[in-house]
Amino acid sequence: MRAAGQQERPLGADVPAEVEQVPVIAVASGKGGVGKTTAAVNVALPLSAEGARVGLVDADLYGPDAAHMTGLNRTKDASHVTLFAAKGTASARLQAVERYGVQMASAAFLIGQAQGLGVQAPIAQLLVHRLIGGTTWDDIDCLIVDLPPGTADIQQLVFTLGKRATYALVVVTPSARTAARPRPCSPPPRTQSRSGRAYPGSSACRSARRRPMTPTSASRS
């Protein structure tokens, strides 16, 4: 809720300038289970090996498997998830976790591995915004964002966050259904985007059944 006379700030207004300019490689698909996370992780690693400083955001809040694929699991359940916090407070910023030379931010670090996030679109957008702009990255060259399947709110947020080059890596499988879907998940025309070829990998590491965490609470310090 806004106080009278207070101007509405667009989502992403507080993203630090240096992060705002970092190119985004969005890994997307029209359908789930095609290997987006596999592709995201396996592109991040050789990019890093080539000398690029890579950030990997696991924006698939409902199946944050990128962290699990790299062997990072949070065993302790979370009692709440912080969506935003006042500047300067301990929970104001998240710290990227480095693994195999890739800096990572994931919802999997915010909740226990047996928990799941049952959040609606506006909260999901806030969380992804926090994962991208609220994380302290160490001098990254590019940000790979592993998106959830489809063309909903999180995808729209990522494609419009900041004035940066955005590249879309659309993953498909040799199936008529998934091949028919990539077009709708391409970024809107006003963003700078280039299509990359997709190399589908295995869809191993699918998320195990998760226990919903209720209620999801936001804390403000």
Partner: peptide
Amino acid sequence: MITRAVPEQVAAYELLARQLRKAIGTRSDR
């Protein structure tokens, strides 16, 4: 490559990474 994959997949990911690296450029390019 950290998941189990055939060499062709590894080569494909490495090729894709090289193309992306060329596309995104370096910080001095931006």
